[in-house]
Design a protein around this nucleic acid. Structure first.
Lengths: 142, 142
DNA sequence: GTATAACCTGTACTATACTACAGAGTCAAG
DNA sequence: CTTGACTCTGTAGTATAGTACAGGTTATAC
């Protein structure tokens, strides 16, 4: 079985060398065997694991959560219910983030539309909204 | 004119004392005058400024951006166009974040729906999606 | 045989937004 | 006058996810 150096792995996965060592320190990937020189020796399994990490990241999982997913994945008696629960929680998480952002979007869009985009800032509805204690028709709280 | 201690300000605005000092260090609020003892003396203007900061935060502005908004606000010759530009940029920013999250949401929802929530993890479509190099109908890239 | 590319460890720094002390001094109530 | 609450400065830690060296060793190409 051929082995890969850290640089080859980095290029194949499309991440930085430092990132791989960082993941190792974080326990996301195992410490690989070393050559006599101390150089890390990786195999195809490490590539797969790193690709898994990248994919999980694009789905919104944090490194901590990815670590959990990985340890479930490597437990032979693991049930897919465990994975589904984590994924569902993440989905709820994403829903909440979207809702929060949508509220921000709505409020801000209203203010931007109201702003003439010219004239003194003392009449700017955007600033006014942020200055006001009780608010002129625009909700500011979460 | 009455003055307020940092603790009184913190209570009125609903933030921590340390946060106020942190904002001072960051230049978001000015260094207030001091009593002979060294105690900070705040006025109503400081309360308003801190409330402004809180409101801007709920609209999604970072402290750096809030600093910009504040400095524009305090410039007498400032034009509301400057504010509108910053707000529009932030709005575009929020739109992008929402779109990214929506893509995550879609992909993840599909996977969660496909997962039986029982059985071995080797058959879990969520894990499979993250493992695969080329993907089984589910897009993983941004 | 030498140049240089790649690798090693360890530490420190980036950004964001706080939060938590320690140790000392001050203020207000009883 | 004492006690406890409050405030001061300065430093360090939290979480997240890396990135960037310095200084030294090893591998590889010519």
């Amino acid at each position: 079985m051929s082995t890969l150096t850290i640089g080859q792995v980095a290029r194949r996965v499309g991440i930085g060398i430092e990132t791989i060592r960082f993941y190792e320190r974080k326990g996301l990937i195992e410490e690989p065997p070393r050559r006599e020189s101390g150089y890390r020796q990786y195999g195809e399994g490490d590539i797969e694991r790193l690709v898994f990490i990248q994919h999980a990241k694009t789905l919104g999982f944090s490194l901590k959560e990815i670590n959990e997913l990985l340890s479930i994945r490597s437990r032979p008696d693991a049930n897919s219910r465990e994975i589904k629960e984590i994924a569902s929680a993440k989905l709820a998480d994403i829903d909440n983030k979207i809702n929060l952002l949508k509220r921000m979007q709505q409020t801000l869009k209203k203010l931007v539309d109201q702003c003439p985009g010219d004239g003194p800032t003392c009449e700017c509805p955007i600033l006014e909204a942020m200055e006001m204690d009780d608010n002129g028709g625009v909700k500011m709280s979460d």
